[in-house]
Simulated assay, not measured.
Amino acid sequence: MAREVQITFDCADPAALAAFWADALGYRLQDPPAGFESWEQALDAMGVPPERRNDASAVVDPEGSGPRLFFQRVPEGKQAKNRVHLDVRAAPGLDGDARMAALETEAERLVSLGATRLQRYEPAPPLVAGFIVLADPEGNEFCLD
């Protein structure tokens, strides 16, 4: 039996990181619970104090096919390189110069949203098609593939 997957990010600012990844992936913020028009309304009804309202956030694929991304506030900062990371498929089916140009265009867009460019890896056929490594606004590495 197949299972759904949720990807969880430990972070300092769940709302900001959720907004970045929603923009990066074409996702949207998860809707508030049924019966509530907004998250503020839902959190008021749940009795969540204002200082705890950015403890978590989530974004979802509007098509319903991609995994939910969940962002939770943690007290510690990022300590080391990620052991698991996301590959954002920005140039599927492209090769060589066309692939790298598409990746560069997407890298520029993501940097304008708050990502940091870390490194570009040139194509080295047959095994490496070329990719660009970025970090999200909290330093989590990801690849444009």
Rank of each mutant, 00 (worst) to 15 (best):
M1K: 06
E4V: 15
E4I: 11
V5Y: 13
I7Q: 10
A12I: 04
D13N: 12
A16W: 05
L17Y: 12
A18L: 10
A19L: 09
F20Q: 07
F20H: 07
A24W: 10
L25V: 10
G26P: 08
Y27V: 14
Q30W: 03
Q30C: 08
P32C: 05
P32W: 04
P33N: 02
A34W: 09
A34P: 03
F36W: 03
W39Y: 14
W39K: 13
W39C: 12
E40D: 11
Q41I: 08
A42N: 08
L43S: 08
D44W: 04
A45S: 14
A45W: 09
V48S: 08
V48N: 03
D55K: 11
D55I: 08
S57N: 14
S57E: 13
S57I: 00
S57Y: 11
A58Y: 09
V60E: 11
P62I: 05
E63N: 13
G64N: 11
G64Y: 08
G64R: 09
G64C: 11
S65Q: 14
R68Y: 04
L69M: 10
L69E: 04
F70M: 14
F70G: 12
Q72D: 08
E76Q: 04
E76D: 03
Q79S: 14
A80R: 13
K81T: 14
N82W: 03
R83N: 10
H85R: 14
H85I: 10
H85D: 14
L86C: 09
D87P: 00
V88C: 06
R89N: 05
R89S: 09
A90F: 05
A90S: 13
A91M: 05
P92A: 05
P92Q: 11
G93M: 11
D95A: 13
D95I: 11
D95S: 10
G96S: 13
D97H: 05
D97G: 00
A98C: 06
A98V: 09
R99M: 09
A101Q: 15
A101T: 15
A102N: 04
A102M: 11
E104D: 13
E104R: 15
T105R: 09
E108C: 07
L110H: 09
V111T: 14
V111N: 03
S112K: 10
S112P: 02
G114H: 12
T116I: 01
T116E: 13
R117N: 08
R117H: 15
L118I: 15
Q119N: 04
Q119K: 13
E122N: 06
P123V: 10
A124F: 02
A124R: 03
P126G: 04
V128F: 01
G130P: 02
F131N: 05
I132H: 08
V133P: 00
V133A: 07
V133R: 03
V133F: 03
L134R: 07
A135L: 04
D136Q: 00
D136H: 03
E138L: 05
E138K: 01
G139Y: 01
G139W: 01
G139A: 02
N140H: 06
N140C: 01
N140G: 00
E141C: 00
